[in-house]
Nucleic acid binder design. Sequence first.
DNA 1: AAGGCTCGCT
Length: 605
Amino acid sequence: MAGTSVHHNLLLPQPQEHHHHTKGITSIEQQCISLLKNCKNIQEFKQFHCLILKLGLEYSSLCTGNLLSTCALSSWGSMDYACLIFQQIDGPDSFEFNTMIRGYIKDMNLDEAIMLYNQMLEMEIHPNNFTYPSILKGCAYLHRLEEGMQFHGHVFKYGVEDDVYVQNSLINMYGKCGKITQSCFVFEKMDEFDRNLATWSSIIAAHASDQMWSECLSLFQELTSQNCWRAEERVLVSVLSSCTNLGALDLGRSTHGFLIRNLSGLNVIVETSLLDMYLKCGSLVNALTILKRMKVKNQWSYSVMISGLAFHGYGTEALRVFSEMLEKGFEPDEVVYVGVLTACSQTGLLEKGLDFFKKMTADHKIKPTIQHYGCLVDLMSKAGKVKEAFDLIDNMPMEANDALWYSLLDACRVHQDLELGEQVAEKLLNLNSQTPNPYVILSNMYAKAKKWENVALTRREMGQKGLMKTPGFSIIQVKRKAYKFVSNDIMWAHCKELSDMLYQMEWQLKFEGYSPDTSEVLLDVDEDEKRERLSRHSQKLAIAFGLINTAQGSLIRIVRNMRMCKDCHNYTKYISFIFERRIIVRDRNRFHHFEDGNCSCKDYW
DNA sequence: AAGGCTCGCT
């Protein structure tokens, strides 16, 4: 038994007659401390503690502090026992209080930590620069802004506002509580030379989580321009997240290169961020390479993989990854289930999706959030069950948001359910009357049903509110430069090269059997005019530009602000076949991979 | 005796 040999060791220092004092601790105390720190579990620790008490050792406050910290901060979760020790201490000092607070924060027990903090003040023991970082960390984690602000006040009261650890913790706390302005305020007030990597990491992460991605990247540039910079995984994770959200594949690639050059190995969090970046920026090939090289995967890696595959239209593969995750013994959380349900809705697996929803609540005891209901509504709507989706929203335990209604409204449009569409549009306008989107979708539905009076009426109502339709556009990247094409933009009509290319494309398309599908042109004009308009959709212009300006056989990437129309989808399939190009289009919901005349969405989107 | 990182419905 491990205990026996340790007892033996503990008794060893006894024969020493003269006590060596080092830094105020006797050598026997020092030995006790080191033995205590090597304890593997609470039982072992208790045994030692009893033994020390039996030996009748008088220990100094430093020793008590160490005893406490060993217990309170151990990984074997023994705050109860630490409490017992703490209560026996006659007049605990700030060191001991800080240790206990840190122990509670480690267990995410902010309320107990705050109680102890108040007790500290009552006993007129001043908190110090070691008190605030830990307690602010607790506020950050649990998004407790009110308490965090209170501590910010105390930081001044107890004169530790210039401590860099305290300042970093404040930046982090405000960032996590969504108060980016306050984070910046603390950051700006800091001495430039005091700022360290944790400072930068906190402020950069704060911007990333507040969706200020471009600002996040400029801060990172500011950091790299300083000489003190060194490779830091933690910072780069936030940078990668910003690249992901901006769809900045090039910058993401550079960051990946930087990581490879500067670090010998990558941890699982960085690898997961890279995985997410490549997936969301549309490079499935790079994502799969990362995945193959990953030695360690955690729940988040699977989560990213599942939603990423779903985003690319590989629903079945996403579900296969999910079952692998379960086999490996990872407990699915609510986020993973959002990915799983998305995979089902993107692929049209209605029954499976409903099954997963049941499993989630019954087997895994996860309370569905509005996001889960969102997926479910999308799942049913896309499968044509619009009435059922409407009933589901009515019977949900929470209020519906606009995302949910939009999902249903778009399905009403696709499945031409005018009556329900009108109801849904009204719901949306009740939520926010100053948005053009419900009017636009509704008028498009009227147009498709050839109810031109209603079209005019809807458009007029929209105009009276001063609302404008957001124009559809497509962005194509050529040699690291972005070119934006807006539908029916006449600016490009003067470009001979482009109109020649469009003419050539059209000619070859017709030869291969393509005929324009004018059913989604939503104006009361004749067939020729419809065809004319169709041919000037932004995606077609962007593709023509891409065919002219990129090397033969190379990949074409397009990002759009809207869902593509049926005809553009069909047209792009033909182009991928005729010009032997892979074309990847990201619309507002997902990726479409066009290759050899087919699309990864299998025409379900 | 202390502080910093990644995933989710239109």
